[in-house]
Deep mutational scan, measured.
Amino acid sequence: SIKEIEKEEIIKVLKEVNFNKKLASEILGIPLRTLYKRLKEYGI
């Protein structure tokens, strides 16, 4: 599903940037606030 793909992509990017959420949100092209929402939604 799209949610699974998105979750995997978020985890992959977070690992690449050593869990720097600000940098991860910039790489993913989403606002930091949205990233936090996704992390909560996906239980990351």
Rank of each mutant, 00 (worst) to 15 (best):
I30G: 00
I27N: 04
V13Y: 02
E6I: 08
S25G: 06
K21D: 04
F19H: 08
L39A: 02
T34I: 13
R33V: 11
N18K: 10
R33Y: 12
E16G: 11
V13R: 03
K37L: 13
L14Y: 06
K3F: 10
L14D: 00
K15E: 09
K22V: 13
L32K: 03
K3A: 13
S1N: 14
N18I: 03
S1A: 14
K12E: 06
F19S: 05
E16H: 11
K7F: 09
L28A: 01
I5Q: 15
T34A: 11
L28K: 00
K3G: 11
R38E: 05
E4V: 11
L32D: 01
N20Y: 05
P31E: 08
G43C: 05
K37E: 15
L23G: 03
E41G: 05
N18V: 04
K22R: 13
L32S: 03
E16S: 14
Y42T: 04
V13I: 12
S1R: 01
K12G: 07
E16V: 09
F19W: 15
E16Y: 11
A24F: 01
E9L: 15
F19I: 01
E9D: 10
I44N: 05
F19V: 01
K22W: 10
I44A: 05
S1F: 04
I10R: 00
L23W: 07
P31R: 06
K40V: 12
V13W: 03
E9K: 15
K3L: 11
I27Q: 08
L39Y: 02
P31D: 14
F19N: 10
N18F: 09
V17D: 00
P31K: 08
V17L: 07
R33I: 11
L23D: 05
K40W: 12
L14P: 00
I11C: 03
L14N: 00
I10G: 00
T34W: 07
S25V: 04
S25E: 01
I5D: 12
F19P: 02
E6D: 11
A24S: 03
E6V: 08
Y36V: 15
R38I: 15
I44Y: 11
G43R: 05
L28W: 01
E4K: 08
E9Y: 14
Y42F: 13
I30Y: 04
L32P: 04
P31H: 07
K15G: 08
